[in-house]
Structures are given as structure tokens and as C-alpha cells.
Simulated assay, not measured.
Amino acid sequence: MELSPSIIDKLEDIEAVDVVIGIQTKNVESTILHVLNVVYDGITRYLSSYRTLVVVSDGFSTDRTMELADIFDISPVKKIAIEQMGEPGKGNGMKTIIEIAHELNARAVGFVDGDLLSIKAEWIGELVRPVLYGRTDLVVPFYVRDKFDGLITNNFAYPFTMSYYGTDVRQPIGGEFCISRRLMGSLREHPLFPSDFGIDIFITSVAAAEDRRIREAMLGLKLHESTTKYVDPESSIVPMFRQVVRTMFDLAIYYTDKSKSMRSRDNDIAEVSDYFGPSPVPVKVDREKMFSTIVERYSGYGSVYRSVFPPRLFEHIGDFINGSAAMDAESWAECAWRMFAEYRKEKDVMLIDALRVIWFARFVSFYDECKDMDMLEAENRIKENARIFRDVMKKVLDSE
């Protein structure tokens, strides 16, 4: 991806910089000024001795996002607001920021979303300074989240990344990141760079697979406008599943040889310590609506399940649909790994769509397991389930 002439023109008066802070936006006119103001505050507090450029990379907004981002003055910090290159999609928006950072020879590139409500100035320091100080190649966020927040993270992205790469990154698709110049080089040249929602798991997976240093930043509570969409995941979060998981699976295939040596390390999963932080915003779950959706979608993939899963596992899924069994952690893990093993042969996205229904079933059972637990108890359950996910991986993949 080469920078467009219009972007090159905006960079003419900007010399080399140390840091680029990228803000991805799309129809966020209600939050962009707040995010810009907090980013400015963070730069002046924590990065005042560095040459920093703020880049607003907009994904073809139809509201006033670009207009507001363009006119908002954060002098003396430099800022440009540009329309991202390529097709609509978060990945292309971040790739645009990375190409600008490469052009300006930046040492660190931080990313924040433009719809954040809880962003604080301290986030900028926590994300960027460990990279500038040479302590890490990738900073990923650790947010305080409700036990039912992170639908894809808790039951899939986290245990998969931990199991396959031996890297215990609790929130591998957290949204906010900072990358080093070295990792930036690996990412921008990678043949599997995704155009959309797979970008977060792409960054974490590449860093893990290529043995880059990864560090978590404690950012506290996270609240953004898209959190409200969890009330109806079928129309919002679920469509994201295909993009995230396809990227996750494709990278796992790409790094098959490397992952074998990483899995052999058998790194343990960090224990959960006592928690004395703030309470997260509760996430509402319509359990009955979710279950109805699963039953409705299940029949469309029955032939896929029958061909991929052994009879006992196929029958267990049927028992869940009939309401006589739970989609327990071990059954879910076996479904996930067997579907991945099948995807390695065919790379058929229908397999991922079929798995999405089982993942949704796992979330319903997870809800049943944890609805009366406090946050710490639920987190311990997530860690326990991740260990099960890892153990099942060894049985399924090593038997091939």
C-alpha cells in the first residue's frame, strides 16, 4: 500500500517524527473531539520531549467526523486528518497509519479508537513509553471488563492465542496498541495483513509467532459506544466473528512450524490475584434470545457438524439444542480445534460460519455457569477454561 498523493501532500511540512498516535474513526462525531482532546493532554504530559504526530484515519464517515477532526486545533502538537486508503475496514485504516509512520521513520506507533468514552491521558503514556524506552515491541491493553464483555475474547481469541503460541495475553483483541519500529516492519510487509476487524488479532498473533516482546498496559475501565451493541450481538458482535477467526486461523496455518516449538514450552497461565480495582460497567445479556438464535441457525450447518465431528460430539451438540446438555468448556474446545484442523485442509469459510453457532452456544453455557459469580470468580473460570482449551488442542492437533 503506497501513500496516496493527497496524504503525501499533507506530510510535506512534517519532518521525521518519533511517535505517531493514530486514531481510527467512522461516524464518531459525538466522541472524536473528546478523544482528540485527551490524546493531546496525554502527549503534552507524557511525550512532550518527543516529536509526535496525531493521525486521524477516517473510514469514510458520512457524518461530521472528518470536519470536526480537521478543524480541532491541538497546537503545538501536529495533527493531520485523512481519509484512509483502500476499502472501508479497520485494518485498512490502521495500515494507512502504519504507512505514514514508516514514511516519517517513527520509532513507535500507538493506536486508539475514535469512539472511546473512557480514554484517559495516562493511556498515552502507558501505551507508548514502554516501546520508546526499548522495553517491548508491542503493548496490548488490559481493561477491567464485565464478565460478559469480550464475547470473542474470553472463550476463543484468548484461549486460542495462549494455547497455539504459548503467550498468555489476556486481551489479544483489545483495540488499543503500541508497536515498535521493528514490529511495524514485520506487520507492513506481512502477506496476511487484514483489511478489517481481524487487525487486532493479527497484530498480537504476529508479535507472538515472531517472538517479539509483548507487554500489557493496565488501562482500567473501558467504555466506548459500541459496548451498547452487546445487547444485540446477533446484529453487531457476531458478524465480527468471521473476520477475526478467519484471520486467527489463517495466521495459525502460516505459523504452523513456529507454533510447534512455542507450544512445547508449555508456559503456564498466570493465576488470578485478588482484585481491588473499580467495578466494570455491567453488560446485559438476553439469554433466551441468544438460545433461540442458536436453534434457528443450527439446522443450516447440520451436515457440516456431522462430517467434521465424531458421533459423540455431534450428539452432544444435539443435546444442547434440545436443552438437555450444556456446551461445556471441553466440548467447545474440541469443536473449535477440530474445525480448525478441517479448515487447514480446505480453508472454507463455511466452517467458520458453522463454528460461530457453536461459539454462541458456548457463550450461553458460560453465561449459565457465571451469572451468579462475581468478577474474580468468573475470571478464574475463564483461566480454567483456557487450560482446558490448551489440553484439548494437544489431543486434537498432535493426533493428526
Rank of each mutant, 00 (worst) to 15 (best):
F291T: 02
E330F: 05
L313W: 12
L355C: 03
R287W: 06
S303D: 15
M262N: 07
E271G: 15
I237P: 00
T227C: 03
Y255C: 07
K284P: 00
H224F: 07
S307R: 14
R246I: 03
F309Y: 13
P233D: 07
E271N: 13
L223A: 06
T228F: 11
S299D: 12
T227A: 07
G300N: 14
G300A: 13
N267F: 13
D250K: 11
A252M: 10
F320H: 04
D328C: 00
R312D: 14
S273K: 15
L313M: 13
S331R: 06
G323N: 04
S303M: 08
K258G: 14
E288L: 03
S307N: 13
K229A: 11
F291M: 11
A354M: 08
D257M: 10
Y343K: 04
K258Y: 12
S264K: 15
A336D: 04
R242Y: 08
V295M: 08
I352Y: 07
G302T: 14
D266F: 08
K345R: 14
V357E: 09
E225N: 04
G300T: 03
F291G: 00
V281E: 12
M240D: 11
R338P: 06
H224A: 08
L351C: 02
D286C: 00
Y254E: 14
P278H: 05
R306V: 03
V349D: 15
S226C: 00
C335T: 09
R356I: 00
S259E: 07
F309K: 03
G277S: 05
M350G: 00
S279T: 09
L223T: 06
G277Q: 03
T293G: 10
L313K: 13
R344K: 13
I237M: 06
S226D: 11
V304K: 12
F314V: 00
E296D: 14
S324E: 09
R312P: 01
R297P: 02
L223M: 07
Y301G: 07
C335M: 08
G302S: 12
D319Q: 11
T247Y: 10
Y343W: 11
A341G: 02
V244N: 13
V244T: 14
S264T: 08
Y301K: 08
V238R: 15
F320D: 01
M339N: 10
I317R: 09
F276H: 12
R263L: 04
Q243G: 03
S324D: 04
D319C: 02
V281F: 09
D268P: 06
S299K: 14
